[in-house]
Amino acid sequence: MRSVIDIMDLSVEEIDSLTETAESIIKDPAAFSDRCRGKKLATLFYEPSTRTRLSFEAAMYELGGQVIGFSEASNSSVAKGESVADTVRVVGCYADIIAMRHPKEGAPLVASRYSSVPVINAGDGGHNHPTQTLADLLTIKREKGGFDGLTVGLCGDLKFGRTVHSLISAMSRYKNVRFVMISPSELRIPDYVKINTLDKNRIPYTEVTDLESVIGELDVLYMTRVQKERFFNEADYIRLKDSYILTSEKLAGAKADLSVMHPLPRVNEISTDVDSDPRACYFKQVLYGKYMRMALILMLLGV
């Protein structure tokens, strides 16, 4: 039974195949509108995430399939104390594929070990979010034409930002990629990401605290939200949340073909006046996310 829990569960060839499928869907969505007829996706969302859940649901509906599930734990048997293992064993009797969002890190891995149907990790705490990374990769491919030789700036919360960690892992498999990490010292990229991914693959990177000083070097600028829910201490959150805000003034020093990305939702880390700049890609990224989820569902269902 094939599940996707971590972006590294997918080989480079599989990611290439998924992006090709997604691009085929973009070109001719009608050709895919019946591919999942008779199939059901269960969206098991143990914490609210309207955006990701709607993306999965839209993806399944556009493939002609149906959707069941819950959008918060209090509405489910989880509130009665049911384990993840038991929940997926039950849901596997009703659905053909599961998308799971869970506040506890590793919950989708547990689910995949007990499920009789494929499990897609739709985000587990501050850990992995592979379908966001698939959205990011399709965005980069379509905006930049490929991945090799890019200088990618990662800005904001690089410590807790799971999308950043997954993107680094995925991009580290391409040639001549360079990262510029832009964050306050408290929210730097964790050492294990540096040791296990960057150093191990000899990926060059620099760490800076100032966005403006490096923005001119970047081909891609990946902004992240400083997430309140990742902090134990509210005072720390308030002190750091406004540290890195992208404005039109800061963008003036950037390349003309920079791609500004963001996993969304944003709070205020990208000023709304950037939205009309042609370099802003974050709403396209949302759309690409749906197409990649469609491609992933097709791959895992083998249809």
């Binding site: 384990s83 869970h102 506890k104 890190e105 590793g106 919950a107 547990v110 587990d124």
Partner: peptide
């Protein structure tokens, strides 16, 4: 030791 880990709540894991 991670309080956010699934091992903190999942029975029998």
């Amino acid at each position: 030791k991670n309080p956010r880990c699934i091992t903190t709540i999942e029975q029998g894991l």
